[in-house]
Design a binder for these strands. Structure first.
Lengths: 162, 162
DNA sequence: TCATTAGTTGAGACAATATCTCATTAAAGG
DNA sequence: CCTTTAATGAGATATTGTCTCAACTAATGA
C-alpha cells in the first residue's frame, strides 16, 4: 500500500529533496503525459509544498505562497492538491474535524500517526506487519487498496498522567 | 482498543439496543457524575442518534430531529457530539473532506472501513490481529491508545475495472 | 513568428460546515 | 420555592471548500 502509483516512483527519482531544484523538463513531461501543464501557479505551489515543514493544511500552504509573493489563488491551491497527491509530492497526514492535513513526501517511507488528544503532538510510526495485514484484509474483501489513513488517538507519555 | 473508556462499558450495559428504551435514571446519574444534565435537547439528540441507520453526519442528525419535531438546535447537536462520543453512544465512522461521519454504537463490535474512491461504498471489517498489532505499537511508543480510525481507500469489486 | 486550441488561472461569489455570543431557560440541590 | 449554574436556541460569524467565468497562457503546428 502506501503511495502505490507508478508516477510516484518517477517523482521520487526526479526530485532531490535536500533543497535542490526539481528537474523542470522531466517534471513537465510527466505532467504532459497526463494532459497537464506546468504553469507558474503550479510551480509555485509545488515549490511551496516541498518547503513546508511538518503537517499543513490547504490554508497553510496558501499563506506560505502569499508570504513568498506568489500570485497563486486559493482556488488553485485546492485545485492542485489532488494533482500533488497523485504525483506523490504530498500525502495525507491526518483528517481533523476541520480539514485534511498533508505532509510532503520525502525520502521517508510511508508512515501512520499516533495523535495525542491533549497536546496534539503526533508521533510517526511505520509497521510493515500492519501494512501486510491491510493487504490481506483487502484481498479478503476483494478490494483494491490504494492508500490508507490510520490515526491512533490517545495520550502521549507526557500527557498520560495529567 | 476500540472504545476504551470505562464509561463506554457502563453505557453498553445500560442500553438495550433492540429498540428498547434507555434506562433514564442510570443515564442521568452517569451524566451527573460528569457534571452534565440530562436535558430535553440532550435526550432528543440521544434518541435520534440511536435511531439513525448507517453512517450520518451532524446535519443528518439535525434533520432527523426536526422531522421528529424536536426543538433542539443545530448548535446543540454540535455541542452534543463530543458528549455522545465520550459516552460511547456514537463513534466516528469516517472523515471526508467535508465533515466527519458517525455511526451509533450497537451490539456490533468496533470495526474499520474500506471506502471506495469511485462509488463511495463503505465495507466494514474487523481484524483482531490488527487491533492487537496497534496495541503493540502503542506500547512500543509509550502511548496510551484510546481509539483509532483506519480507513483504507481504494476500489471495490464493482468499480475496480471502470 | 503567429494563430489556434484547450488547459489553467485569479477573483470573488457561493455553499457548506462549524463555532461563538448572549439573553433566556431550566436542571439540581438545598 | 429559591439559588446556582449548566444548557439552550437563534442567529451572527468564522472557517473551509467549490464553482463560475472572463482573461490568460502553454503547447502545437503552420
Amino acid at each position: 500500500m502506501g503511495h502505490g502509483l507508478i508516477l510516484t516512483i518517477n517523482w521520487r527519482q526526479l526530485n532531490v529533496y535536500g533543497g535542490f531544484a526539481v528537474k523542470q523538463d522531466s517534471l513537465k513531461s510527466i505532467l504532459a503525459g497526463k494532459g497537464l501543464r506546468l504553469t507558474r501557479a503550479r510551480q509555485d505551489i509545488i515549490t511551496a509544498a516541498q518547503a513546508m515543514k511538518g503537517h499543513f493544511d490547504p490554508q497553510n500552504l496558501y499563506d506560505s505562497l502569499k508570504e513568498k509573493g506568489s500570485k497563486a489563488s486559493r482556488a488553485s491551491v485546492y485545485r492542485s492538491i489532488p494533482v500533488l497527491l497523485e504525483a506523490g509530492i504530498i500525502s495525507e497526514a491526518e483528517r481533523t474535524d476541520r480539514c485534511t492535513h498533508y505532509e510532503k513526501v520525502t525520502e521517508n517511507r510511508h508512515h501512520d500517526h499516533l495523535t495525542c488528544l491533549r497536546c496534539g503532538t503526533t508521533i510517526e510510526f511505520y509497521s510493515p506487519t500492519l501494512e501486510m495485514l491491510q493487504d490481506e484484509i483487502c484481498q479478503r474483501e476483494n478490494f483494491k487498496g490504494i492508500r490508507h489513513n490510520l490515526d491512533i488517538l490517545g495520550y502521549c507519555r507526557e500527557c498520560v498522567d495529567k
